[in-house]
Design a protein around this nucleic acid. Structure first.
Lengths: 153, 153
DNA sequence: TTCAGTGCAAAAACTTTGCAGGAGG
DNA sequence: CCTCCTGCAAAGTTTTTGCACTGAA
């Protein structure tokens, strides 16, 4: 079930940009919101297939891009890894630390960073639209990671 | 001409990790240091070819990875674009704003962000190794970007 | 009715790998 | 002399595209 507010955000964006309202787009939005953590296009496609929701890979890629454009999703890249997505809904802006030892990801919030970025953009006659930060770190004792983190995949 | 200090950093890293000291690796290091801005593996490969320095693409990819590991280079990704590299030599850590209107890139320094990240890592029993941030912004009047920026490519 | 969206497969773009020959330690 | 490195081509991975058909407006 897609929250009304998000659905409206999506519909508004589609209409404003002369995109059509299609059932596939809502199926993909719904499935993306169900993904608990970061995911990539192919994972979402397979997840949907698993649930007998058949849309093509091409449509998944295109729709994720639309959802990124209207700020329902953020894209992340961790140094050359495939592009991963994350829904923004109900979440404050946050950053990612990847443990280079165990590949797990820790998230943290730090509102001041957003303020800094907005300020710098303004000083350059720009309006900030989005920002992402990836921090890479390692455990003190490799092989025995004790930090509290999510699985990457 | 590769600065002695960088050369030594590279050699030390190679030796410590049982990698061999080869001529190709120095050719690629040299060429990478000559690149003025961000570049990707293929651009570097073609640039070298242009200068009649023949090494294979595979070797370029592998060597860039080594140079990243020993902190001579940083990797960046701008939302799904290909992996781009940047030499760290003689530069403070800095961040990137990409104008989504004209695709140009502005760099800025802000040492406090690094401090914040180190602090957060420490709080999670981690040691920060690296970090990258990409800010996306747009001009006030699209089509007439007046900010002072570098070409992306 | 019209034109954007879809699915499919094929292509493109980027990166890694296997292997045979060559060179560093 | 034993490995690791290199170059090449081939394969792998991820993403985009062309095209005929379908369906939203």
């Amino acid at each position: 079930m897609i929250p009304e507010e998000i659905k409206n955000t999506f519909i508004t964006y589609l209409k404003q940009n002369a995109h059509r309202i299609t059932n596939e787009r809502f199926l993909i939005l719904d499935a993306a919101l169900d993904m608990k953590f970061h995911f990539d296009a192919d994972e979402l496609y397979l997840q949907m297939k698993n649930n007998y929701i058949n849309v093509s890979r091409a449509t998944v890629y295109k729709t994720l891009e639309l959802m990124n454009e209207c700020n329902i999703l953020t894209k992340h890249n961790f140094k050359g890894d495939r592009t991963r997505y994350e829904t923004k809904i109900g979440r404050n802006h946050h950053y990612h630390i990847m443990c280079i030892t165990c590949k797990k990801i820790i998230e943290f919030e730090y509102p001041e960073i957003e303020k800094i970025n907005k300020k710098v953009c303004k000083a350059n006659n720009l309006t900030m639209v989005d920002h992402t930060m990836q921090v890479f770190a390692k455990c003190e004792n490799p092989g025995k990671c004790k930090h509290n983190a999510n699985n990457y995949n």
